[in-house]
Design a binder for these strands. Structure first.
Lengths: 337, 337
DNA sequence: CCGACCCAGCTTATCGTTTAGCTGATCGTG
DNA sequence: CACGATCAGCTAAACGATAAGCTGGGTCGG
């Protein structure tokens, strides 16, 4: 691999001149500039960002930690973040935590060693986990997504899960349903807990009592939701409507209903969290709460840029809450009592 | 940020000793080792991989370029690659080319500057594109995925698209269908071209003529497939079966059929390329050709490790072809003439 | 006509590691 | 007891870039 010295030698100039022409950081006479560019081309020289980073202390790398890229919500988020990063000249280091705090902390350490300029994290642990790992002195700007976990010093971009669940559940109630079930997410992350709370409060507001037998843990997983859904209909008084707390669990539930021979919306009405292209290809098309993922991703990156620009100066920690929209399709029917 | 010097000073040893204990690369007496570790802990020292990489010429970074992470096929692939990389101590630099050769070449340049140890690429260009960009001297080990584009010196891992399409189409023919349509991918990438060729040859083998009006370009995109599908049924003699060349286009086609009021499999039989969790949640469940993505991802990483281990020595270029499986579900019906 | 200033381009210290080579001290042995 | 071998730990030279500061010839004002 050619170095700046090789280029300098070939062009008959000093390395400083090469650096200046390559980075356009100081005036270089047209003649020299041309010679340098010629040398660069003929050697196929590509400056080493690792040497550059060492010297100037900036890597143009941003670490991104998500629990699971396979979850379409995160896929979409990664997608918009990648675009934003590329536009700003940053490259993403993609890491999957697999919902495992220990692994996540290991990744955080690695990213610290890589000297990434910033970290975007969907936390799968609680504050105490991170504190125990001695990550308090972690210097890189941090932006949290999806889950609102009070962190040392970071912005957070999330969706108002409580309000979303409230609205989704109320929609079912407005259709006349009284026996409502939910397939809930993991209760130890904020998204799961908030969505369940919204469901319960919607029931409460409508003067309905919450029946614990109609609340099933799906842990945000397709397989768990499949089992949970079958379970729900094995009881003497099955629900007439279900609120499903994410897209993966929707797939599980729909499979279960098909295997049970139950038709939606005739036998059961459904509202789910998250919208995705293929939700409109289900029959019936599923009514959902759509998260504004693109806007959220852009907000995340803006927050990151703001922190990056602050250059180490203390900055207030913002919490940006986005409101999901109800997208009415065909999966809810009016229940005439 | 604490450096190795700070640690050395605090522990009262030389930097060489710190390096030796941190990397376990030479004997250090227990007493010193303990002192060093104590100093590391109290300073929250994290070695800088950028300095390390500069010195030893290895970054433990692997560049991954895919056209679009949002395409579930690539999502899944990224997922298994990320796991493999993490297990081997590598970190992935994720980049999206958006099917744009110019952008892809820019990314390749960036990765070269980052001095990644290797590159995994789903090429969206042809050999001449890369040659024109002067990437011939690109030194990092290269493994190509999905598309078989003759490249300078690289392994390729792909699925046998021709055989897959042959089998999928033959399956429809075996069900008695004679008017077969296809919604094809982009013909300028090998996957698109090979899949179309397989479709046509299956027709030929069965003694059926190919009707160009039943061949529609979907360009691997949902929206294009939606339009293509509607188009197909606007003709006087619509097909009785469709072979759809990827998952995104399947979603588009299914939406179009629903909007047209056509039922599958009663009005139209379908076989699609790619299997995904939610394909079993469609009604009817879709019959597909399943690509062994996990196995392919693992093969990619193995090939990469082999090249990484070769350390610059020339190595033969392998082409690893995987055979997809037909997964029969409910989207094809027997046509009684 | 001379000193101050300017400016292109060079020299060199520096970033935070690794590692080859060196230095004494310790040890075993003839 | 002396000599070489062994070995823990140190010194210092890279790695490839950047940028502060220097040099020396040219310009300009007084």
């Amino acid at each position: 691999m050619a170095t700046i010295k090789d280029v300098a030698r070939l062009a008959g100039v000093s390395t400083a001149t090469v650096s200046a022409t390559v980075n356009d950081t100081a005036y270089v006479s047209p003649a020299l500039k041309a010679r340098v560019q010629q040398a660069v081309r003929s050697l196929g020289y590509a400056p080493s960002t690792v040497a550059r980073s060492l010297k100037i202390g900036v890597t143009k790398l941003i670490g991104l930690i998500v629990p699971d890229i396979t979850n379409p919500f995160f896929t979409e988020l990664v997608h918009v973040l990648e675009i934003a990063a590329q536009k700003q000249g940053y490259t993403l280091l993609l890491c999957a935590s697999d919902e495992d705090v220990a692994r996540e902390i290991g990744i955080l350490r690695t990213l610290q060693m890589q000297r990434v300029d910033g970290v975007i994290l969907a936390p799968s642990g609680t504050l105490s986990d991170y504190r125990a790992a001695g990550l308090a002195s972690y210097a890189a700007p941090l932006v949290l997504i999806d889950r609102t976990e009070p962190f040392f010093d970071a912005d957070t971009v999330a969706v108002d899960n409580y309000a979303a669940s409230l609205e989704a559940t109320s929609h079912l109630i407005a259709h006349g349903h009284r026996r409502l079930a939910t397939i809930a997410g993991s209760s130890h992350v904020s998204t799961g807990a908030d969505r369940l709370r919204g469901f319960k409060d919607a029931l409460g507001r409508a003067g309905l009592s919450v029946d614990e037998r109609l609340i099933r843990a799906g842990n945000f997983r397709q397989s768990d939701a499949y089992a949970a859904c079958k379970d729900l209909f094995a009881q003497p008084e099955p629900p007439t409507a279900i609120y499903i707390a994410n897209n993966l669990m929707l797939v599980g539930a729909v499979c279960a209903l098909a295997d049970l021979g139950l038709a939606c919306p005739d036998d059961i009405s459904i509202v789910a969290m998250d919208d995705l292209p293929w939700m409109a290809a289900f029959s019936p098309k599923i009514t959902v709460m759509r998260q504004p993922i693109r806007a959220m991703g852009e907000a995340v990156f803006e927050a990151m840029l703001r922190r990056l620009g602050a250059g180490g100066r203390k900055i207030e920690s913002n919490l940006l809450m986005f409101k999901p929209d109800l997208v009415v399709r065909e999966s809810c029917r009016d229940l005439v009592a």
